[in-house]
């Protein structure tokens, strides 16, 4: 008995989307924190340039981003070939590529949320911590991170939601192969292209609403836990 009355292809699409969104938000988190911290706190040459690059996927048409990924990470492209030859990692037309596409598309949202959270941390508290003998890493881990935790959670949830719904860049970079690269949105799109696919599309639609509501509720709960629970 398939869960929720889903056909195997539909179920695979849901599973793949969750997997892609999970890895995309998890793997981009450390880099997003670093970039957000740099943009919020450091003055350096090329800061504006970095800011623009981070925001590009938000501004460009997703198809363009997907095409750029294909040009850089495709099997015959320089970086793609290097990754394949050296580490045996293939991204184009694989689910791992879908993770990369989702991560790139979600990155600006995550950086923005975390940057706001870092800017809200009072540097006076960090100064106080240094006068108490804490070095930069200890200050960051014990003062900065707990104080910005709600923003961190918000950033991860935003990125997860964006990754779940990412369509344009994903379909351009890794296509729409059932069981391999067909995520929930690409599955809905595919079902709409074939006669009689409406029922599948509606089932997936209901399921994606359900997942979104669940994720939102979970994030609210986590944010509250983080605000009240840090440091105890």
């Amino acid at each position: 008995m398939p869960l929720f009355g889903l056909a195997p292809t539909e179920w695979q699409a849901v599973q793949l989307s969750l997997l892609v969104a999970f890895w995309a938000s998890l793997l981009s988190l450390p880099l997003a924190v670093l970039v957000a911290y740099a943009l919020a706190r450091w003055q350096f040459w090329g800061r504006q340039l970095l800011n623009i690059c981070v925001h590009l996927p938000l501004i460009l048409p997703p198809v363009v981003t997907g095409y750029v990924l294909l040009l850089v990470f495709g099997q015959t492209a320089p970086v793609g070939r290097f990754l394949n030859d050296t580490f045996g990692i293939v991204l184009a037309f694989r689910w791992t590529g879908a993770v990369l596409a989702a991560a790139v598309m979600a990155f600006p949202l995550m950086v923005r949320a975390i940057r706001l959270a870092i800017e809200a941390v009072d540097p006076k508290l960090e100064q106080a911590a240094t006068t108490l003998g804490a070095g930069p890493i200890r200050v960051f881990l014990t003062i900065t991170v707990p104080m910005m935790a709600p923003g961190l959670v918000a950033g991860v949830v935003l990125a997860f939601a964006k990754a779940m719904g990412e369509f344009g860049a994903t379909i351009t970079f890794v296509a729409n192969i059932p069981g391999q690269t067909q995520t929930l949105p690409s599955a809905i799109y595919a079902f709409l292209q074939v006669p009689g696919g409406d029922a599948s599309a509606v089932r997936l639609l209901v399921l994606s609403v359900f997942i979104s509501v669940l994720a939102l509720a979970l994030s609210e709960w986590m944010a509250r836990r983080v605000v009240h629970g840090t440091g105890q």
Partner: peptide, 22 residues
């Protein structure tokens, strides 16, 4: 020498207690 290695204690005008700790 950075502040955390100077062997000083600092009481600021405002208490600057860490709000997320007891």
């Amino acid at each position: 020498i950075p502040p955390h290695q100077r062997g000083i204690g600092y009481v600021f005008q405002d208490p600057r207690l860490f709000p997320h700790m007891s």
